[in-house]
Design a protein around this nucleic acid. Structure first.
Length: 294
DNA sequence: CCGGCGTCCTGGGGGC
DNA sequence: TGCCCCCAGGACGCCG
């Protein structure tokens, strides 16, 4: 499940392997993977052909390649998406959805392919115009509503705290709302809440500023640590986004740990269903509020 | 306008 | 052994 750290690892891989190359004739092997490209697969392919890649950028879980046309190739990996850089002769992956030939810059050694592989097709690619954002930088128009993420230097803690307390909902639902703060998914939400000793159903309007600060610090800490561990595996030709950064095996305190002892107090971790997904928490360190909001 | 629910999708695993 | 159901969940459309 790629969240911010995994997507950032992919972005770094794209920066290394794709920036400076040109895209050839793309092949859309599964139309669902470009379903958000409204003009359809042929237009998708046409707007990429011959364009060179200038930058690899990211906001939250979205990442995009800026093109010399003023467009961006925007990607969301969903639950199971991968972007792989392969030699053109490599066997097709079982769930290969889109193939993007990369022509080398003059004098560069070998041709490559960028491949979008996605078992469950929750992810997608699209080509979109870049429009200026609030800082005057280019942002794909369709993600104008996506907030900055906690690792973005321009993330505004004060504005976040104020917006959070204006909400009338539970704190985990707010953390997962990408228009409020981006990049946080189910795993890092549970980990950040455990670190900040907050229950997922805690009403946002009842959070005091020190608790908001603790929550942000926890989210930043857990994502920075995951990034440090995941960032070690992208120096091969493969852009690593298997969603298992090694972080998961060693360092999770709450997520997926049902009935296992809390690392602080030993109380068995509780699994509850919320928003059609699992929430893991320590019932002692993160007691449910009386005025729980879901 | 905003909160919150339903929906999309596939492979792995458990139960019988 | 095979079948069926459940589970994983990000983001958007839509409803109240």
């Amino acid at each position: 499940m790629p969240e911010l750290p995994e997507v950032e690892v992919v972005r770094r891989g794209l920066e290394r392997w794709v920036v400076g190359r040109s895209i050839g004739e793309a092949a859309v092997l599964h139309p669902r993977s470009v379903r958000r490209h409204a003009p359809g697969p042929a237009d998708f392919t046409g707007r990429l052909a011959g364009r060179s890649v200038a930058r690899a950028r990211r906001r939250g879980k979205y990442l995009w390649l800026t093109l010399d046309s003023g467009d961006a190739l925007l990607a969301h990996l969903g639950m199971s998406g991968q972007l792989l850089v392969q030699p053109p002769g490599a066997d097709d992956e079982r769930h290969l959805r889109v193939r993007l030939p990369l022509t080398p810059p003059a004098g560069a050694p070998e041709p490559l392919e960028l491949r979008f592989v996605d078992q469950r097709t929750f992810g997608h690619l699209l080509v979109d115009r870049l429009v200026p954002d609030d800082a005057g930088e280019g942002l794909p128009s369709v993600i104008g509503h996506i907030a900055r993420d906690p690792l973005d230097p321009a993330f505004d803690d004060d504005a976040f705290a104020a917006a959070l307390r204006r909400r009338r909902t539970g704190v985990k639902r707010a953390l997962l709302d990408q228009s409020l703060v981006s990049g946080v998914g189910n795993i890092y939400a549970d980990e950040a809440l455990w670190l900040a000793r907050l229950h997922w159903a805690r009403p946002t309007e009842s959070l005091r500023r020190p608790q908001v600060d603790a929550l942000l610090a926890a989210a930043r800490g857990v994502m920075t640590e995951a990034l440090a561990q995941g960032g070690t595996s992208f120096d091969s030709l493969y852009v690593n986004v298997n969603g298992e950064s090694g972080y998961f095996e060693r360092s999770l305190n709450a997520y997926g740990r049902r009935d296992r002892p809390c690392g602080r107090c030993g109380t068995p971790i509780l699994r509850e269903t919320f928003m059609n997904r699992s929430s893991y928490s320590c019932p002692k360190c993160q007691p449910a509020p009386r005025d729980a909001r879901f």
